[in-house]
Design a binder for these strands. Structure first.
Length: 220
DNA sequence: GTCCAGGGTTCGT
DNA sequence: ACGAACCATGGA
């Protein structure tokens, strides 16, 4: 059986089961989490979100009403708090200006992605997290784990640009209804992160890949 | 003590 | 277009 984007997904799902991403009660909370999780362990992001919720600040207007210093203090556990306070403000200002989730829903996938990328502090991965997990748009999220795992499998070269990789994955997983693809992309990225956390950082790092024969951490 | 996490921007080349 | 420095906490 040839290794494909489909078979890797099946292998991961069989081993780890559903990941129930994205944790969060509302789309807005997911968007906040997407900004806060930039290069940060999720456990630290959760602490920051709890702080915001305790202050009733999981809300764009409430966040904008905070001074940058107050906001930074609340999100302190998520690290890079001064940078992220600024990015969160930038995002909330944009979010309110565009008309919140209704305004976002009025845009097609491409326009919304472009609009998100225009926000200072929202790059490709954060934008795609928001598109997929908060807006239910069929975009495949690429991260460092994706690049590492799939280049070791030989399914990608590894030095492609973010945009190239996204196209490769979306084309490699082209079949299925709109809804099925969203569900698949949702679960797939979550499984890649789960697997990456689990074994791809074992020391010494497996030189081949944790999904391939010969790797001590291979799944079966 | 060291390493690095569910990255992005800015400023060099 | 691409690479490196920068940001900062907390858990393993």
């Amino acid at each position: 059986m040839a290794t494909t984007f489909r078979t890797v997904y099946q292998q991961l799902f069989k081993h780890y089961g559903p990941q129930h991403w994205w944790p969060g009660d509302t789309p807005f909370e997911i968007m906040v989490g997407a900004v806060l999780t930039q290069n940060t362990a999720w456990t630290n992001v959760e602490k920051a979100i709890v702080n915001l919720r305790d202050r009733d600040c999981l809300d764009a207007e409430r966040i904008m009403a905070l001074t940058p210093a107050r906001l930074a203090a609340l999100i302190r556990p998520a690290g890079y708090f001064n940078v992220k306070a600024k990015r969160l403000r930038n995002f909330c200002a944009w979010y309110l200006a565009i008309g919140a989730e209704q305004g976002m829903a009025a845009l097609d996938d491409k326009s919304l992605r472009h609009a998100l990328l225009s926000v200072n502090g929202i790059g490709p991965e954060t934008a795609d997290d928001i598109l997929l997990y908060a807006c239910d748009r069929p975009v495949f999220v690429i991260d460092a784990y994706t690049r590492r795992i799939f280049s070791r499998l030989g399914l990608v070269a590894g030095d492609e640009s973010y945009e190239q990789l996204r196209q490769i994955f979306e084309k490699g997983l082209a079949r299925g209804s709109h809804h099925e693809r969203i569900k698949l992309f949702n679960e797939y990225h979550a499984l890649i992160v789960r697997h990456g956390k689990d074994v791809c950082k074992t020391k010494p790092r497996c030189a081949s890949c944790c999904l391939r024969k010969g790797c001590p951490a291979r799944l079966d």
